[in-house]
Design a binder for these strands. Structure first.
Lengths: 204, 204, 204, 204
DNA sequence: GATGAATGAGCGTTCATTCAT
DNA sequence: CATGAATGAACGCTCATTCAT
């Protein structure tokens, strides 16, 4: 007698849910959220399309679930990097490295979040916007905490915005696979260029 | 004289076309390209929706037309800034200032191009990608031309990418009107923070 | 030059709307509201199904429109019968005769209203319930006004309910075309049986 | 012993079946037959929805079963009332009282039969129509048997229709709980008003 | 030029029913 | 007996586009 009632096993339910989420992520990355039919996701997952509605409320909920999963992890990691202490340089390298590494490991998921969630008025609802803002504020907090190391007159909020903008376009550029390489060395080089530029500028 | 098709009045044709384009831009900015119906554009322009098809091939063509108009002007201006000579700092300030000023004058158009064209696989066809790439290359050319003023080891292409990314998020952030101000002073401050950060870094 | 701008002619718009409404009524009568697809209505009307959505918000709105049209007329007629004066017998004969005649002229419409609207929790929303109640109250008012002609102890509200119930089942029975005849003579006989029974009872 | 299919316990099978039937009746009364999902019934019964198909062939069969159970009892009771003898008044009071009492004891079941079965072309198949007709004929038979007590010219069939229509709307009106009360006194009053009206009319 | 009626491909979603476990 | 994952037919609805007037 293994378990009392293994009916509706939560573990396998979650496993299947994740499986569908991965299939959806691949499909969204390939054809965009709008261009992906629910049937495409099902086909990618090897199941009937009706089954998707056992695991998700609707098509939108799949994308929201992807975003929230990614974003929750991201925020926690950034908080960890901040809490660990270290120099400003180490922290910036940590933040940039985390997102670039996330892209290397799960390029589809990063692409979809960047392209479909962060730009869509539909998904940038109050919840998601506040999640998004959380990252900005955390980075801003890092700059504030290290204000003593900054040139006078540097605005922490603006700097946080610029840094994330530059980081985002690195990821976007990698997605496009046109402007930048995608191998580990290129990633490292990109990360260093980003951090060095922000810390020391490009002027000789 | 064998004109191809004797429009009654080419000037007024163009005027109406621009009028529709402006109406469409407002509508796209408010509800997104996908969320805007052709009928919404017509209503915004005060005409019947069927008439739109006298001036544009289809809905996509409206957005493409907006992009090409904006982008052509942008490229010419950037080229002009480069050709005028001056220091690297002046050129970067010119580039950033141009886009920020464009946003101040036509925020809807800038928002739509950023959100709907540059992220959409549908509109990033060969033509548009190469137009987009043109801007990158022009900026990269500026960094190459001023290589003597740069720290050794600074990569021109990567720097161009980072700079445009930071610039883009300023525009995006301004669109959101949440993180940064939108008045002339805030714009100037943003431009200076961007250029100073890239030239001199933020470290003290 | 006939008219200033015959574009979007309200008259022909209404005519087409009514045409669709009639087609829908036939379809609903034949297969029930739930059993009728929007495409069935379109086919019955000889148009494409998409066109239906130019004239009605959705499938529900078609049924609501039918009900409100029928019910508004009915209430007005009943009010007219009441206002005209006369004996209680004349008024009851008028009310019953009106509904039975309506059924003779538009059996499908009466059938649909009886079967699909008055029994459906979905369509018996606040508006429709209050419309329905209006008829009850009007009939109750008639009994109250003629209280002097009634046996002592007769409850006007209960009597109104019973009268309308008996009237409704006459119509329903005619719909079923099983229990009662449908010709003019049968209708007259039904009406008289109803009124005579209520006024004088059946006991010898 | 060659039982056809040796159910573990026919009694408990029937008990469970009835349990499901009661749960379905509550659900149908609350949301209508079409608006009730098989899963809703299962939830109401506290079982898995798949199990329902062990006890009923399909969703329709549940409603049919409810109708047949109710109707069979009703017919038997009406026959008993008729067979017992007595005056016409006693018989009419018995018939009306039975249905009103049934509603008091099982309002959901009565409501569902009235709203979902008797008006639905789907369930008014040959079997059910003939069951339904049985009640009419039995009541008609009562009027025929008591023809001597009736005014000349009273049509037994029409009178049966009118009587059942007035009775039905009482039940419907009680369901709505708007126009009439629902307590025992109100029920008695309704029954008496119905019978008195039919026997003696309302004219003074 | 200008209008809006007309078309229909296409998609998201529901839910009764089956069946492996 | 009991469960709920799995299936897929079916349907309402949207909206870009065409075209007769």
């Amino acid at each position: 007698m293994p378990e009392d009632r293994p009916r509706r096993d939560p573990a396998s339910f979650e496993a299947k849910r994740r499986e569908i989420l991965r299939a959806a992520t691949r499909a969204f990355a390939r054809k965009g959220f709008a261009g992906t039919r629910v049937g495409d996701i099902a086909q990618e997952a090897g199941i009937a399309y009706g089954l998707i509605y056992h695991y998700f409320d609707n098509k939108d909920a799949i994308l929201s679930s992807l975003f929230q999963g990614m974003w929750g992890v991201s925020l926690k990691v950034i908080e960890g990097i901040d809490a660990q202490g270290g120099t400003l340089e180490e922290k910036l390298r940590g933040v940039a490295g985390f997102f670039l590494e996330a892209w290397r490991l799960e390029p589809d998921a990063v692409e979809v979040v960047l392209k479909e969630v962060l730009r869509s008025p539909k998904f940038l609802d109050a919840d998601n916007v506040s999640a998004f803002r959380g990252l900005f504020e955390r980075l801003e907090g890092i700059f504030v905490a290290h204000a003593a190391e900054l040139r006078p007159g540097v605005d922490p909020k603006l700097t946080a915005v610029l840094f994330l903008g530059a980081l985002e376009i690195l990821l976007t550029g990698m997605i496009a696979r046109e402007l930048l390489g995608a191998d580990a060395a290129a990633i490292e080089q990109s990360r260093d260029a980003l951090v060095d530029t922000f810390l020391h500028g490009i002027a000789g």
